[in-house]
């Protein structure tokens, strides 16, 4: 559309195309733990990162690497960042995802008024388009520099469905949840004390289907606010459960908890789970989701220092 002379200077920071809108909706919905949420989007030659935060205690990032896109043209300087309403963005993306029909979505930034531009490009006679207003992003209120707690990582991988179920069950005691890792015997314990007590033990050697991996060389124990733990699993998309994926939890320095999920953004037609599990899993078509949860500051945290 641009004349050749103007296209060089007017080339947008990003033009990308995606053939699985539902996968992107799933990935972004994972970090949508309440209705009104402001998100920051960061663009680079490697892909798009979306960051949401809450009150300096919880941060979530969605990594959409360039490999997820069928086309990815990046012309930005530095790493352009802009603010957008997550709810509006997800609701809007949702209108592009027609069930039972594959649709190709083009995303472009910035528009003439710094908007985020979306457009369906696969049909000649029907076109869906959107312009979402962006904001100048807020400064990051808290640095979530995640550092390992020691020489060996303190980490375990649990089936996402089991993690979600455990955290859902802990709603009953509520308030704060203690996560305890101990090397001998290798057990992860979730313990809630509030209106009542509830303890959930995940034993590594008893059930390796549930607890897939476990690395811990010393006992640690931290408390986290229930509502923040819940935010990490409350919107795990159905595809994650269906694909029987695992979530990785790591405790870093100072008890900072990192929760990682994998969400498939593969084309629905090519990702028949039965066929794929036998052969090729399309590793490049995965969106990575990371949550960082700050521990509650109390005497237990001090004991671990």
């Amino acid at each position: 559309m641009n004349s050749p002379s103007s296209s060089a200077e007017e080339a947008p920071d990003l033009v990308c195309q995606l053939d699985n809108v539902q996968g992107m909706v799933d990935a972004l919905t994972t970090v949508r733990w309440k209705r009104q949420q402001d998100a920051v989007m960061e663009l680079s030659e490697h892909g798009v990162v979306l960051i949401v935060e809450e009150t300096g205690c919880l941060q979530a990032k969605v990594y959409l690497q360039r490999e997820l896109f069928t086309r990815y043209e990046y012309n930005g300087q530095g790493r352009p960042r802009f603010g957008v309403s997550l709810g509006l963005f997800v609701d809007c993306l949702n209108t592009f995802s027609v069930p039972g029909q594959s649709s190709i979505l083009e995303i472009r930034y910035p528009g003439p008024d710094m908007q985020l531009l979306l457009k369906s490009v696969d049909s000649l006679d029907a076109c869906i388009y959107a312009e979402i207003r962006t904001r100048i992003p807020d400064t990051v209120s808290w640095d979530y520099n995640f550092e390992p707690a020691g020489s060996t990582p303190l980490t375990f991988t649990v089936k996402s469905a089991a993690l979600k179920e455990a955290i859902d069950d802990l709603e009953w005691p509520g308030s704060s949840i203690q996560i305890n890792l101990q090397p001998v015997p290798p057990i992860v314990t979730f313990r809630g004390e509030g209106h009542g007590d509830l303890q959930i033990d995940l034993m590594y050697y008893v059930n390796t289907d549930l607890l897939v991996a476990f690395h811990c060389d010393r006992q640690v124990s931290y408390k986290y606010k229930y509502k923040f733990l819940r935010a990490t699993t409350s919107n795990i998309p159905g595809s994650v459960i269906k694909d029987n994926r695992g979530s990785k939890l790591t405790i870093g320095r100072g008890g900072l908890l990192k929760v990682q999920h994998l969400v498939s953004v593969a084309r629905p037609s090519t990702s028949h789970p039965r066929i794929d599990s036998a052969g090729y899993q399309q590793p490049s078509r995965i969106a990575y989701i990371e949550f960082f949860v700050k521990p509650e500051e109390d005497e237990d945290a001090a004991n671990n220092q």
């Binding site: 559309m1 309403s85 509006l88 809007c92 209108t95 000649l124 006679d125 029907a126 076109c127 869906i128 388009y129 959107a130 312009e131 979402i132 207003r133």
Partner: peptide, 27 residues
């Protein structure tokens, strides 16, 4: 104020008054 979202369907069957779309509007 935050979003514009729309859909356009073209070349639909017309009943009643019709006209040809000007070619300069095409793109």
């Amino acid at each position: 104020t935050l979003i514009t979202l729309g859909a356009e369907f073209q070349k639909l069957l017309v009943l009643g008054e019709r006209a040809d779309a000007p070619s300069e509007d095409l793109n």
